[in-house]
């Protein structure tokens, strides 16, 4: 890939960033993924390895993004972390204890919002609190705080269908956070949002993360989003899903939109591009870079060439 400007290496970190990563590594471990394997059986009986020997450690209050080409098993990984699927082998350790099955200690935000349509915004946020045995009064009080935190105080009595996509996702985040989970798992949460809303939501999430005690594990397929949000990026490769590289993002914290064009940002993006779209990896017989096109415009066409 040719670049028109010279970029530094994504591995170069300035002193502050280096220092910060050193401090992060000193923090206690929030989540540990140990020798994780996941195999599926296809209907024809063939075995497919979705995840192969994943080892990864997340420190407390760290923001980790997971990125990888389609079929790398990133969704499977987060579903295993949430307890919605069981690994074939390996272990997930949360705060020193192995996890089994889904539970409120791991909040999850899905791409499809998954708000309960029959409950108002407030009752949605109260759902988890009531499950963990809070009294209704207490749950309501707590829920109000979380709704205010995501800026939807005026909408607490609205039903989900009355909200926009971005608002729904904010409710989903409030609902997950209300349980005060150890870790917040987010599975491509902004995949269905338009670019402006997405940028705003990223901003909100950064603010939330900076101000409350939460570790975030965030799946995305958007390179910019991963770099903009993450302390570290776990890059997976496909077939089978394996750890490709773990990147410490050299962009200083706290982040702001201007950094999207900084040299560190672009250097990281270049590296991610190389990892996710390697130049030589083409399926046999299919040229994925170009379509097999011949000129289908008449010689007497008004526009002879688009160039």
């Amino acid at each position: 890939m040719e670049h028109l400007v010279d970029l530094p290496s994504y591995l170069d970190q300035d002193e502050d960033v280096k220092d910060r990563f050193a401090r992060i590594k000193q923090r206690p471990i929030a989540l540990e993924i140990k020798n994780l394997y996941k195999q599926f059986e296809t209907p024809t009986g063939a075995k497919v390895t979705a995840l192969k020997d994943i080892n990864f450690t997340v420190h407390k209050r760290e923001f980790v993004c997971v990125i990888g080409p389609s079929g790398c098993g990133k969704s499977t990984l987060i579903r295993i972390l949430a307890g919605l699927e069981t690994p074939t082998s390996g272990e997930i350790i949360l705060d020193g204890k192995p996890v089994q099955g889904p539970g409120p200690d791991r909040g999850m935000v899905f791409q499809g919002y998954t708000l309960f349509p029959w409950l108002t915004v407030k009752r949605n946020v109260m759902f988890g609190l009531e499950q963990s045995g809070h009294s209704k009064v207490l749950a309501e009080e707590d829920a109000r705080q979380w709704i205010d935190l995501v800026g939807l105080g005026k909408f607490e009595d609205s039903y989900p269908h009355e909200l926009s996509g971005g608002m729904k996702q904010r409710v989903a985040i409030a609902r997950a956070l209300a349980n005060q989970p150890r870790i917040l798992l987010m599975d491509e949460p902004y995949g269905a949002l338009d670019a402006q809303t997405r940028a705003k939501m990223q901003q909100y999430l950064m603010e939330i993360w900076q101000n409350i005690d939460i570790t975030i594990f965030f799946i995305t397929h958007d390179l910019d989003e991963a770099i903009y949000l993450a302390d570290r990026i776990l890059v997976l490769k496909a077939h089978p899903g394996e750890v490709n590289e773990i990147i410490e993002v050299p962009v200083p914290q706290p982040r702001s939109p201007e950094q999207l064009l900084s040299a560190e940002f672009l250097a990281t993006k270049k590296r991610l591009e190389e990892l996710i779209h390697p130049p030589s990896e083409e399926e046999e017989g299919v040229n994925s870079d170009h379509l097999n096109m011949v000129r289908m415009v008449g010689v007497d066409n008004e526009v002879e060439s688009v160039f």
């Binding site: 889904p102 909040g107 899905f110 998954t114 309960f116 029959w118 759902f127």
Partner: peptide, 27 residues
């Protein structure tokens, strides 16, 4: 019923009985 609602409820701590009465039935 959208299975992701059940999954969401599980990650919020709902167990068997709560899943049936607080998610499946109203859903």
């Amino acid at each position: 019923l959208d299975p992701s609602l059940l999954e969401a409820a599980q990650t919020l701590g709902a167990k068997n009985k709560a899943l049936l009465f607080r998610v499946v039935v109203p859903g």
